[in-house]
Every structure is written in C-alpha cells, then in structure tokens.
C-alpha cells in the first residue's frame, strides 16, 4: 500500500474540513452558537455554483465571485432576520431554529435537484496536479483550498488583532452587554460573523464540489466534519482547527485504505478518542477566538 500517497490525500482532504471548521468556530467564538445548518449551507453553495454554471456557462472558479457575496448576504440575512430575534433566550431556540433550517434546506435541495449526486464541471483543473518532491503528486484544487484555508486563518487573525471592527468582534465575544455600552451594535457584529462564516464555507463547498460529487443529504456529514475538526484541534484555536481538519482527513484516508467501510468511522473514532483523552483538543490555546 502507498502510505505516503494515502496520507497526502488525507491531508489535502483535511484542508476542506479545516475550512468548514473555521467557519463553525468563528460563529461559536463570537456568539456561542452552533449553526446546525452549517453543513447544509456548504452544500447549498455548491448547488448555487452549479446553477450559475448551467445558466451562464461560467467556469466553476469564477462562480466564486458571485457565490461568495451571495452566501455572505445570506448569512447576514439569516442572522439579522431570524437568529437575532431569539438572542438572549438561551442556547436552545437558535439551535432548534438552525436544525429546522437544516431540514428545510435538505428537503428543498431534494425537491429541486433530486437525490442524484452532482459534480461541478472543472474541466482540466479537476485532475490537474503538481508533483511534490518526486514522491507524490498533489491536486491543484486541494492545494488551492489549503492555501485559502491558511490565508483565511492569517486574515482572520490580522483582522481580529489589528482592526477596530476586529476588536469589536472580540469585545462582543467577551461580553456583549458591555460591548453595547461602548457603542458596539452587537446584532450587526453577529450578522457580519455569520456572513463571514458562510463566505468561507462557500469557498470550501465549491472547491470540493469540483473534486468530488455532492448530494442534497451531504450536509449533516459536513457539519460533523467541521465539528470534529474543531474538537480535535481544540476550541478557540484557528491553527488548531486547521491541524484538527488535517488529522481528520488523514484518519479518514487511512481508515478507508484499511477497509472501505471505515472511511467515516475512523474520523469519528479519532474525534471521540481526543474527546476522551484530551477534551480541550490537541492544540488548544487558552483564548484566541
């Protein structure tokens, strides 16, 4: 068996999970909310791209220019129009609302696109790869995704640390009531956070859609991968989430190499092991959003 190849494939797959996880933990960091429709929205972005390609004939990568702002707007709308209405009523209402939205999206996609799996026509990009050090070849798409994940982390950190708006995000995350007393509109912050989260996962959704197939009921699995990347890496650490996503990808890849039925199972078991042995995650820092 080609172990190096298996691990490299796992790492590349894990880059997608990392991006899912960053989107999930961004929301949790700012407003302590877990968006149960997270995975379904990832799938939604891929379908959005698919429709654009069919209607306009744009190449998949260019649809990002439209899908990212649309998903950002959708996030702002979801937060400000729906979730902000149940703020301060405890964790249950937003959780159940996002669960309801998850079911609505899944069934809506089923109605609109049937249960058949789809794939974004990426042409030559789909299989394009570059040799790495002569011992492995690496697809261009997952490499692009990995670069975006790393850029997203650096960008988020710079934003949070160096801009007034970023500091407002952190202050709101610490203590929304006091943040309001400082002139911060926390509902606006929450809207922007949800928008940013969906914009990030739109990228991952489309890039993965060019590489593998997707279907209307793939959302829950992607939510779970995002969750596992966060749990393995440790809550509140963006680099930890990246590492968590990569480890998850490797676990799945190695699991599948041993037995095709163990692909998902191996990832779940790694997440549970981390939870059992080191509940704070493998790379947790104290707080860094």
């Amino acid at each position: 068996m080609d172990w190096v190849g298996t691990i490299v494939q796992g790492l590349l797959l894990g880059g997608f999970y990392a991006l899912y996880g960053i989107g999930l933990s961004l929301i949790f960091g700012v407003m302590r909310l877990v968006n149960l429709a997270h995975g379904d929205l990832i799938v939604c972005a891929a379908y959005l791209s698919l429709v654009l390609i069919e209607v306009s004939g744009l190449p998949p990568l260019l649809t990002l220019a439209i899908v990212i702002p649309v998903m950002f707007g959708l996030g702002v709308l979801l937060q400000r129009g729906v979730l902000n209405r149940v703020l301060g009523l405890g964790p249950m209402p937003p959780l159940l609302i996002t669960f309801g939205i998850s079911i609505i999206i899944q069934n809506g996609l089923l109605l609109a696109f049937t249960a058949d799996t789809q794939r974004l026509p990426a042409g030559s990009l789909e299989t394009a790869s570059v040799p790495v050090g002569g011992w492995a070849t690496v697809g261009v798409l997952p490499l692009l995704n990995m670069a975006i994940a790393i850029l997203a982390i650096i960008g988020l950190q710079q934003f949070m640390g160096r801009t007034d708006l970023g500091r407002a995000f952190r202050a709101t995350s610490d203590d929304p009531t006091t943040a309001e007393l400082m002139g911060i509109d926390s509902k606006r912050i929450y809207g922007l956070a949800m928008g940013a989260s969906l914009a990030l996962i739109a990228v991952a959704g489309i890039l993965l859609g060019m590489r593998t197939t997707f279907g209307p009921s793939d959302g829950p699995a992607r939510l779970i991968y995002a969750f596992e990347a966060v749990i393995i890496g440790g809550l509140g650490s963006l680099w930890g989430t990246l590492a968590g996503g990569l480890l998850l990808g490797v676990a799945q890849s190695v699991g599948a190499a041993l037995n095709p039925g163990w692909f998902q199972l191996a990832g779940h078991i790694l997440a549970l092991l981390v939870l059992a042995i080191r509940p704070t995650g493998l790379f947790a820092r104290t707080r860094d959003l």
């Binding site: 877990v34 959780l95 969750f227 998902q264 779940h268 078991i269 549970l272």
Partner: peptide, 18 residues
C-alpha cells in the same frame, strides 16, 4: 451547548456505521 447536540449526532452516526 450546541457542540453537545452535534456530538449526539456523531454517536448516532458511529452506531449506524458500525
């Protein structure tokens, strides 16, 4: 909170896969 909820889903998925 919400991570508990996703966790319960993972447990169900593991049992399904097993």
């Amino acid at each position: 909170g919400g991570y508990f909820s996703v966790g319960t889903w993972v447990v169900a998925e593991i049992l399904r896969l097993l």
